[in-house]
Design a protein around this nucleic acid. Structure first.
Length: 359
DNA sequence: GAAGCGTGGGG
DNA sequence: TCCCCAAGCTT
């Protein structure tokens, strides 16, 4: 028995989530909002995205406003959401779209040419915003599909085969009549019913069509290849505050980890721990500046492919010498939210403040 | 194809 | 505490 789109859409009409970027029933979606939400939702949970989405939409009501904004402002609003290349690509994409009159391409092929838009996002925008009959294959759809057809080959190797099966899910007339709802129904099914750990098969509109459910293996799919162990790396960062509550920050390189974001000064992270004298040799210095450094503790931060342990040193000075600011970074006030400071660096600052070195 | 790229919440 | 992983893209 093949899954019926009508069954899924009927379920969706009763149980669809209300989300800030989602059009109400019968209304058409704004391509800008759909695009913005899709970029933010890449590898990121709905609950994490919502406040960022609201702030972005308030700051940049349309693609032209986003295109005209300084990159620093975009990065500052993105700070904390992670995968910062998304924010750089978002800004670049807005400028391309603004240059073509503010209208997004309405085909998968056209969307694919834009920065930050890959196979999934192109299909999602095409289906949700432009009603193209395509199935965006994200993690939800992969999970639903592997279970529906009991596909047991492990990810990521099986990804292409899974996508082929998924793209056939909209083959019947009800699905092709409502491409936008069909795509979002698959998301809601994956997010609310066909969940990773303990799927609520008893509530699933596709239960009778699901091969994995019949075989009692739904919760074990999709299978994944074993992951490599996460190594540990070691960093040192210096938190220096002046009498007016200014913090010395440096601009990180455009590419690479935390690219385009601000950070506390410190030597490059390495594979072996640091000793205190070793670390202090890298402290920011300037003529006639003799800061009293205090070791305030360690921050543990987990990135995708390694764990970072940061020893944080804090010092208070009267004022930052111009040479230091000019050579190594900028100053901003603590509490100023409009700075592109990623979560790792915010943790370091919070630790330094908790040590009362700045009181 | 594989590696690089963040973060926070839940089991 | 640890492990999993979430509407993936780029190189």
């Amino acid at each position: 028995m093949l899954p019926s789109a009508a069954d899924l859409l009927h379920w969706y009409d009763r149980h669809r989530r209300i989300l800030p970027w989602r059009a109400l029933p019968g209304q058409s979606a704004d391509p800008y909002r759909v695009w913005l939400s899709e970029i933010m939702l890449q590898q990121t949970t709905v609950t994490a995205v919502i406040p960022y989405y609201e702030r972005f939409l308030a700051a940049f009501p349309d693609v032209g406003a986003l295109a005209r904004a300084p990159q620093d402002r975009v990065m500052a609003l993105w700070a904390g959401l992670g995968y910062y290349a998304r924010a750089r690509n978002l800004h670049a994409c807005a400028q391309v779209v603004a240059a073509r009159g503010g209208r997004f391409p309405d085909t998968v092929e056209g969307l694919l040419e834009l920065p930050g838009i890959g196979a999934y996002t192109a299909a999602a925008i095409a289906a949700i915003a432009f009603g193209r009959p395509v199935v965006p294959v994200d993690g939800n759809v992969e999970r639903v599909t592997t279970r529906l057809f009991a596909l047991t080959d492990p990810l990521p190797g099986a990804r292409k085969a899974i996508a082929r099966q998924a793209m056939g899910l909209n083959g019947d007339a009800p699905a092709r009549a409502r491409p936008s709802d069909f795509a979002q129904a698959l998301f809601d099914l994956g997010a609310g019913i066909c969940t990773p750990r303990t799927p609520a098969c008893v509530l699933c509109p596709w239960r009778d069509a699901c091969a994995a459910h019949r075989q009692g293996i739904a919760a074990t799919l999709p299978r994944r290849a074993a992951k490599a162990a996460r190594p540990v790396r070691y960093g040192i960062h210096f938190c220096m505050m002046d009498g007016a509550g200014g913090l010395l920050l440096v601009r990180r390189p455009e590419k690479g980890l935390l690219g385009g974001m601000m950070g506390l000064p410190g030597p490059a992270w390495r594979d072996s721990p640091w000793t205190a004298p070793d670390a202090l040799a890298h402290a920011p210095t300037a003529p006639r500046l003799c800061p009293q450094w205090h070791a305030v503790g360690q921050v543990r931060h987990v990135f995708t492919h390694f764990t970072l342990l940061v020893d944080v040193y804090a010092a208070r000075v009267k004022t930052f010498p111009n040479s230091l600011v000019g050579a190594q970074g900028m100053v901003h006030r603590v509490g100023d939210g409009a700075v592109a400071l990623p979560s790792l660096m915010r943790k370091c600052v919070a630790l330094a403040q908790s040590a009362h070195v700045f009181d």
